[in-house]
Design a protein around this nucleic acid. Structure first.
Length: 368
DNA sequence: GAACCGTGGAG
DNA sequence: TCTCCAAGGTT
């Protein structure tokens, strides 16, 4: 790795001081953010950082408020039921975060006397806490001199140094650069200032360089390479998958199952489904079950594949047990269905004839 | 290193 | 409609 100090266009102390002054002049006020110069509450900082992983601030705010209202303290969250937390997380995505959130809360409650470890290393050992989150909590909640390098910070550093190393290979250098810049005073404010700079000024597209505290020293700006920093690898093609979801209805109730703890939508409530694959096997139904294919297919795009999900309504015979065909589950009154991941929410809307609200997400079904 | 893991807003 | 991608972590 090239010399960190040589890569920087100015002394670390100068760059940090300018960034902190910029932060003090007008940073964002966010529900989890402490006053400038103060330490954050560890529970709030940790909860917000986990929610913010690969997720926009606008999407997180209502979930953060909801979680804080339902579980105001770490101890209360640690005592919560799995299903309640998964349902509260529904719609936010990356559901392993919710499982790890609970595991982490319970670990802190049981193994750390209810208090978060106050070092980067101690935090890093907790479930769902990786290098970024550990550094962010250590800096913001405990005032540790830690390098919280997220996507924003990678971007501002790649531009500041005009580093052409493509991601993710650039990450180690970014971490070294970030650590070199963190001041001994106000490391938490510095972490949030660097993130704000990336989010508000040094944006991926159309950055506002005239508002940047580093505009006169930025090497990518001087070189005219801003739009190419950080360099990203070409995107992979998304495969397409198909499957069928079953709306099993009886006496105003619908059969809901719980998805396996690991993998896609792990631990979430869902409608029974066939396998999702490029060429799924035909759906086999128990004899006597009346099937009504709907004239709609739910379309949903996940991170690494897109999905067309045919929706079939089923009316099981009075004595039939859906668990036999679809595994363990529960009858839920139709109007009380709640806490579904978005793709299942689309299935529900299609089955209940509310697909008008999902325009663009429903497509004509292929011939059954 | 690379694959896996959601969703929604912006342009 | 389509592409990009956001306060990443785990395996």
């Amino acid at each position: 790795m090239p010399d960190v100090l040589a890569a920087l266009p100015a002394a670390p102390a100068v760059l940090a001081a300018r960034l902190l002054a910029w932060y003090d002049a007008g940073h964002r006020a966010l529900p989890w953010r402490p006053e400038a110069g103060a330490l954050g509450d560890p529970y709030r900082v940790w909860l917000s950082e986990v929610m913010l992983q690969q997720t926009t601030v606008a999407a997180v705010i209502p979930y953060f408020e909801k979680f804080l209202a339902s579980w105001p303290t770490l101890a209360e969250l640690a005592a919560a039921e799995d299903a309640a937390v998964m349902a509260a997380w529904a719609g936010l995505g990356y559901y392993s975060r919710a499982r790890n959130l609970l595991a982490c809360a319970r670990a802190v409650a049981a193994e750390h006397g209810g208090r978060f470890p106050d070092t980067e290393e101690g935090l890093r050992a907790l479930p769902g806490v990786g290098p970024y989150t550990a550094a962010a909590v250590a800096a913001i909640a405990f005032g540790r001199r830690a390098a919280a390098v997220d996507g924003n910070v990678e971007r501002i550093l790649a531009r500041l140094t005009d580093d052409a190393t493509p991601l993710p290979a650039f990450k180690p250098a970014a971490r070294a650069l970030g650590l070199a810049l963190v001041p001994a005073e106000r490391p938490g404010d510095f972490a949030q200032a660097a993130i704000d700079l990336g989010a508000l000024v040094c944006r991926p597209r159309e950055p506002d360089c005239l508002l940047c505290p580093w505009r006169d020293v930025c090497r990518a700006r001087a070189a005219g390479t801003i739009s190419q920093r950080p360099l990203r690898p070409p995107k992979a093609e998304k495969p397409h998958r198909r499957g069928t979801a079953f709306w099993v209805e009886r006496d105003g109730c619908v059969w809901l199952v719980r998805r396996p703890a690991k993998g896609l939508l792990g631990g979430m409530a869902a409608f029974p489904c066939t396998e999702w694959s490029a060429d799924p096997p035909p759906a086999a139904l128990p004899p006597g079950w009346a099937a009504t294919p709907l004239n709609a297919t739910v379309r949903h795009v996940f991170t690494h594949f897109s999905l067309d999900l045919a929706v079939v309504k089923l009316s099981p015979p009075p004595q039939a047990d859906p668990a036999t065909a679809f595994g363990p589950g529960a009858w839920v009154p139709m109007e009380k269905i709640d806490g579904l991941p978005t793709v299942m929410e689309k299935v529900r809307a299609a089955a209940m004839g509310k697909n008008k609200t999902l325009r663009g997400d429903s497509v004509p079904s292929r011939t059954p």
